[in-house]
Amino acid sequence: MELNLDQIPREKTLTKKEFLRKYFRPQKPVVIEEFIGDWPAHSKWSLEYMKEVAGEKTVPLYDDRPVKHDEGFNEPHARMKMRDYIDLLKSEPTKYRIFLWNVLKEVPVLQNDFTYPDFGLRLMKGLPMLFFGGSDSHTFMHYDIDLANIFHFHFEGKKQCILFPQSQTKFLYKIPHSLITREDIDFANPDLEKWPALKHAKGHIAQLEHGNVLYIPEGYWHHMKYITPGFSMSLRAIARKPKNFGKAVYNIFFMRHFDNLMRRIKGQEWIDWKNEKAVSKTHDFLFQK
Rank of each mutant, 00 (worst) to 15 (best):
residue 68 K to A: 14
residue 118 D to I: 05
residue 85 Y to M: 02
residue 31 V to F: 00
residue 124 M to N: 09
residue 180 I to G: 09
residue 275 N to S: 09
residue 244 N to E: 11
residue 11 E to W: 00
residue 169 T to P: 02
residue 287 F to L: 10
residue 212 N to H: 14
residue 287 F to M: 11
residue 110 L to V: 07
residue 283 H to P: 11
residue 114 F to H: 12
residue 83 R to L: 05
residue 253 F to S: 06
residue 178 S to G: 15
residue 63 D to V: 03
residue 9 P to Q: 11
residue 127 L to V: 11
residue 188 A to H: 10
residue 163 L to Q: 01
residue 86 I to G: 08
residue 246 G to Y: 14
residue 199 K to M: 01
residue 65 R to C: 10
residue 171 F to V: 04
residue 10 R to D: 05
residue 110 L to W: 01
residue 116 Y to V: 04
residue 245 F to W: 05
residue 220 Y to Q: 04
residue 223 H to W: 10
residue 216 I to V: 09
residue 173 Y to R: 02
residue 77 H to F: 01
residue 167 S to Q: 07
residue 23 Y to C: 01
residue 193 E to G: 09
residue 237 A to T: 11
residue 187 F to T: 01
residue 207 Q to Y: 13
residue 170 K to R: 11
residue 63 D to Y: 08
residue 149 N to T: 11
residue 52 E to Q: 15
residue 67 V to L: 13
residue 242 P to V: 09
residue 248 A to F: 11
residue 269 E to A: 13
residue 15 T to M: 08
residue 134 G to C: 03
residue 175 I to Y: 07
residue 169 T to D: 10
residue 193 E to S: 10
residue 182 R to Q: 06
residue 200 H to C: 12
residue 83 R to C: 09
residue 61 L to A: 00
residue 238 I to Y: 15
residue 199 K to D: 02
residue 165 P to C: 04
residue 21 R to N: 05
residue 196 P to K: 11
residue 137 S to D: 07
residue 243 K to G: 08
residue 38 D to N: 11
residue 108 P to T: 10
residue 210 H to N: 07
residue 86 I to D: 03
residue 188 A to Q: 08
residue 276 E to F: 07
residue 117 P to A: 08
residue 8 I to C: 03
residue 135 S to M: 12
residue 98 I to D: 00
residue 22 K to M: 02
residue 172 L to K: 02
residue 63 D to K: 02
residue 266 K to S: 07
residue 248 A to P: 05
residue 248 A to D: 08
residue 268 Q to N: 12
residue 126 G to V: 05
residue 74 N to S: 10
residue 163 L to V: 03
residue 126 G to S: 04
residue 36 I to F: 13
residue 166 Q to D: 04
residue 37 G to K: 09
residue 287 F to H: 07
residue 280 S to N: 09
residue 277 K to I: 14
residue 7 Q to K: 11
residue 133 G to T: 04
residue 23 Y to L: 00
residue 36 I to P: 01
residue 12 K to E: 00
residue 71 E to C: 10
residue 148 A to W: 13
residue 138 H to V: 06
residue 91 S to M: 10
residue 182 R to E: 14
residue 200 H to V: 09
residue 20 L to A: 04
residue 25 R to T: 15
residue 203 G to S: 06
residue 230 G to H: 13
residue 143 Y to T: 04
residue 94 T to R: 06
residue 62 Y to K: 04
residue 250 Y to A: 14
residue 1 M to V: 15
residue 2 E to W: 06
residue 30 V to D: 00
residue 237 A to S: 13
residue 45 W to A: 08
residue 99 F to A: 09
residue 12 K to D: 00
residue 103 V to D: 08
residue 109 V to M: 12
